[in-house]
Design a protein around this nucleic acid. Structure first.
Lengths: 233, 233
DNA sequence: GCGCTTCATTGATTCAGGTCAATGAATGGG
DNA sequence: CCCATTCATTGACCTGAATCAATGAAGCGC
């Protein structure tokens, strides 16, 4: 288990790889808070304002409550990700650990206040936010205009790019999320996820080992099945 | 019709309200391009890299091609918005004018290159990108977990917040987008949009005048119908 | 290593919204 | 001002995914 100070150090290094001056380091350290979150547990964050969260280790999901029992997984995060967890406005968001996670949190306003004069810090935040936006837009396309088979294929291709281990011609995914998480991310039910995975299995495009390992046997075909643009269009 | 130089001036003022120094102004002016785009026309932008677009006047939609004839409207934009139009990667994006628009475009990399040492410019971009991300996430919730009635209500409430004119107790919307645009934004068909608007009309929650004006008679009820969190949850 | 609990898979049925088709209202050009 | 064309609305029917229900497999504690 890493110490609080080590976690914060990593956070500061991520914000400004060049390294910030000592007084600023102290201010950031004072304003940030390192938290360990166990699997399936929700990070206890201040919901009254946006929070910047740095994921030192583990993996998390950002979940929005769409009233009652409906939940939408807005994003998955992995080691080294910078995440903005929105304050409760129209919907309530929560950050939940998929696997035991270490993270550092800080009110976003405070980050801007302290880092607002540092181009390096702002550039890091802008870069991270642009990446989040790009992924969120891709997700909107999937949720808005794709059928169930394409949705599941999209998730697998996306995960291949983020956490896939290439093993010869195949890609091995050790997915930290359950079928429910996948379903809540893709806007479908767990049954539909399961059925689609079965279809992909029958077609020889994937193999599954246990609940969390998926081996992609034909990434090209899977990418086709995800309905992405291929070459000219 | 505004002159090229005036459009660029507005862009620079939006990027850094404090005003940037003369050499930097010249560099930005040289790298940016003012474009007039007529209604229903696509802005001709370089698709090989992300473009930063400033909407001086008019309104636009950011559309993604989800293969063949399926289109997803990723976002709507109004006067003064800063938009990042993504390069063609997994999907092809295009920016289309809903009403005649004047915009200024510049490769995002170039913006970072020139403005990367200016905290004010980076702060503006970060702010705009965070707003886009917040809206995109809200859209993901709508697309992933909401039924047709809630989707249409969500759009109206969202538009009320962005372009609504309060007129006594009611909110008047002069919407620049067609039923098709709404449908492509909400991940449903034009027929379903039409049916839901009819239901809202029958329930006395809205009135419509012509094709583009909608008067919201009961914003509170509409917000309830959108499935947003209300108070404690 | 065995049983318990949770999670995933599979099957039967239902239903919201898509598709197809026709009618009706707006708007814009001549 | 009128007509033509596009856009919106309404209705009938169909389909893909949700729901309901049951079985089977993994993983965990003892």
């Amino acid at each position: 288990m890493l110490k609080q100070s080590q976690l914060v150090e990593r956070f500061l290094g991520r914000l400004d790889p060049e390294g910030m001056n000592a007084p600023l380091r102290l201010q950031f350290a004072a304003a940030s808070r390192a938290v360990a979150v166990w699997r399936d547990q929700q990070a206890r964050l201040d919901e009254s304002c946006d929070q910047l969260v740095f994921l030192v280790s583990g993996s998390t999901k950002l979940v929005a409550h769409a009233s009652q029992d409906r939940e939408q997984v807005v994003a998955f995060h992995f080691e080294d990700d910078l995440v903005c967890v929105p304050a409760r406005v129209r919907h309530a968001y929560k950050l939940v650990a998929l696997r035991d996670a270490n993270l550092v949190a800080m009110p976003y306003d405070k980050v801007i206040e302290l880092g607002g004069r540092s181009p390096a810090i702002l550039a890091t935040l802008l870069q991270a936010t642009r990446a989040s936006l790009a992924r969120c837009r891709e997700k909107s396309i999937v949720l808005g205009r794709k059928a169930a088979p394409e949705r599941v294929a999209s998730l697998l291709v996306s995960m291949a790019g983020r956490v896939g281990n290439t093993d010869g011609k195949t890609v091995v995914l050790q997915l930290p999320m359950s079928r429910r998480d996948m379903a809540d991310s893709l806007g479908i039910t767990i049954e539909t996820v399961s059925r689609q995975l079965t279809l992909l299995r029958e077609r020889g495009m994937i193999e599954t080992v246990g609940r969390s390992q998926i081996r992609i046997l034909d990434l090209h075909a899977l990418t086709q099945g995800a309905g992405f643009m291929t070459g000219a269009g």
